[in-house]
Deep mutational scan, measured.
Amino acid sequence: QETIEVEDEEEARRVAKELRKKGYEVKIERRGNKWHVHRT
Rank of each mutant, 00 (worst) to 15 (best):
K27C: 04
V15S: 06
K34R: 11
R31F: 09
K21A: 13
E11Q: 15
A16M: 01
I4M: 15
V6Q: 07
E25C: 04
K22W: 04
K21L: 11
E10I: 11
H38A: 11
K27E: 09
R20P: 10
G23S: 06
A16Q: 07
H36N: 13
R31G: 08
E7V: 15
R31A: 05
E11V: 13
R13M: 05
H38S: 12
E29K: 12
Q1N: 14
Q1P: 00
E7D: 15
V37Q: 00
G32S: 11
H36M: 12
I4T: 03
E10W: 13
R30K: 01
K17A: 13
R13F: 04
R30V: 07
A16P: 00
K21P: 07
E5A: 15
V37F: 00
E2R: 12
V37G: 00
K34E: 06
A16C: 02
D8R: 14
E10Q: 14
R39W: 09
V37P: 00
E18V: 07
R30L: 10
R20C: 14
K22N: 03
R31I: 14
K17V: 06
E18G: 11
N33V: 06
G23T: 03
T3Y: 13
R14C: 06
I28Y: 04
A16N: 01
E2T: 13
T40W: 14
Q1R: 11
K17M: 00
E29T: 13
A12C: 03
E10C: 10
R31S: 12
L19T: 04
E29G: 10
K34P: 00
I4E: 01
E5P: 15
R13T: 11
I4W: 03
V6G: 02
Y24F: 02
W35A: 04
T40K: 01
R30G: 11
T3F: 13
Q1I: 15
K22T: 07
V26W: 06
R39V: 08
K34W: 04
T3G: 09
I4C: 08
W35R: 01
T3N: 10
H36T: 08
R30Y: 05
E2P: 10
V6P: 03
A16G: 06
N33H: 13
K34C: 03
D8Q: 15
K22Y: 00
R30Q: 01
K27H: 00
I28D: 01
V15P: 00
R39T: 05
V15I: 07
R14W: 03
Q1M: 01
L19D: 08
A16H: 01
E25S: 14
E29R: 07
K17C: 11
R31M: 12
K22R: 10
K22E: 13
V15L: 08
G23F: 01
V37M: 01
W35Q: 04
G23D: 15
Y24D: 05
K34D: 02
L19A: 03
I4S: 01
G32A: 09
G23L: 03
G32P: 08
E11A: 13
E9H: 15
W35V: 05
E10M: 15
K27D: 12
E29W: 06
R31T: 05
D8H: 15
H38V: 09
R31Y: 03
